[in-house]
Structures are given as C-alpha cells and as structure tokens.
C-alpha cells in the first residue's frame, strides 16, 4: 500500500514536471497551421503576448515597433505571440494582415478568446509579459505614444514593454509592472439577444 502510494506520488510529480500545468494548457494553431503553445513552460526567459485587432488603427500603427521588439528580443530568448481578438477573423484574412504588416512572430487566432480570458486583456494593442513561473511580470501599453483615444504624442517618451523586457533579462524587477493600454476595446462574444 505504502510503496504503491509513493509510486503514485512519484508518477504524479513526474507528470507535473513534464506536462504543463493545467492553467497553461493553451494549444493553438497559428495562422499558418503550426502548433503554438504560448504560456507553456519552455526554455524561454519570458513570453510576450500582444493582443491585436486587424482593423484597429492603433494596434496597426504599432506594427513596426512590434516587429522591431520581436526581432531584437526573440534573439534574446523571449518568445513573441500576437493574438487576434476578433473571434470571426478567418485565417486567410489574418495571413493577409500579417503579410501587409510584416509580422515576424507567430500570429494566433483566438476564436474562443481563451487567451483574452486567461490574461484578462481589455484593449488592443495590449501587451503581457509572462515569466516561466507563470506570473505576469508586465501588462499594459507597448509605449506611451497614445495618451488617450484621439490624442497622440509626436514620439513616444517611454517605451514600457522594452523597459520591462530589459529588466527581466537583467534579472531585475519590472519598475512599472502595470500600465494603461490605450486602444480599441476587445469585444466579448455576443450574448443572446432578447
């Protein structure tokens, strides 16, 4: 009895060590059909998840900055995932969008809004940095170029996502772990009509 229990516990421990924790079990196909597992335990130093909306002008305006950050930090062991928040967007439309904006990291469709719910994203673009331990080290804007809807700085004065990633790579705490993202609100799937 006792050895059997010990063996069971050992097996369970092994299972937990090998398999991702249930909260992390988010399997996706990206827009080209490849398996992607954002927020899964990996060898990466952190995962960046940025929520986007194909026709949100604010999210789209950030594309070149997203591409620069992805190019730079993917080379430094940070994984990047872009997540479309429109449940109705087709893979074909998303492929065209990714081509137009030159994205260089996996782009996911999230028709059930599992990632939206998991990270409690509210607007696009909103960035999340999740550590291998599963904690959200940063959430909020990519930088401060948009002060509020309809009000934009000529240049950003603070690049929050970059600062957060630099801090994590340096083993430092993120100085400002939560900022307010400005953009288009993420709509949740339609409730039943009365």
């Amino acid at each position: 009895m006792r050895p059997a229990l010990a063996a069971l516990l050992a097996l369970l421990a092994l299972a937990f060590a090998v398999l991702p924790a249930p909260a992390f079990a988010l399997e996706f196909r990206d827009i080209f059909g490849h398996d992607q597992r954002p927020l899964e335990k990996s060898s990466a130093r952190a995962d960046v998840v940025i929520f986007i909306l194909h026709d949100c002008p604010i999210a789209n305006a950030f594309a070149p900055e997203i591409n620069r950050l992805a190019a730079e930090f993917q080379a430094r062991d940070i994984r990047f995932f872009l997540v479309h928040t429109d449940p109705d967007l087709s893979a074909t439309a998303a492929q065209k969008h990714a081509k137009d904006f030159g994205y260089r990291c996996p782009v996911l469709l999230d028709p059930e809004q599992r990632l939206v719910a998991r990270l409690k994203a509210t607007v696009t673009p909103e960035a999340f940095v999740v550590t291998p331990a599963g904690t959200t080290a940063y959430r909020g804007r990519i930088d401060d170029r948009f002060v509020e809807l309809g009000k934009r700085r000529p240049e950003p004065t603070r690049r929050d996502l970059r600062l957060a990633l630099e801090a994590i790579l340096a083993g430092q705490p993120v100085a400002e772990p939560v900022t307010k993202a400005v953009g288009c609100f993420i709509s949740t799937p339609k409730r039943s009509s009365p």
């Binding site: 429109d86 109705d88 809807l149 309809g150 288009c184 609100f185 709509s187 339609k190």
Partner: peptide, 11 residues
Amino acid sequence: VRKRAKTVAQV
C-alpha cells in the same frame, strides 16, 4: 457595430 460597441460608446 455590435463588435465595436464599447469603443463606439467611448469615442
């Protein structure tokens, strides 16, 4: 409009 209701209401 439904999909963007919250953004529309805000702006």
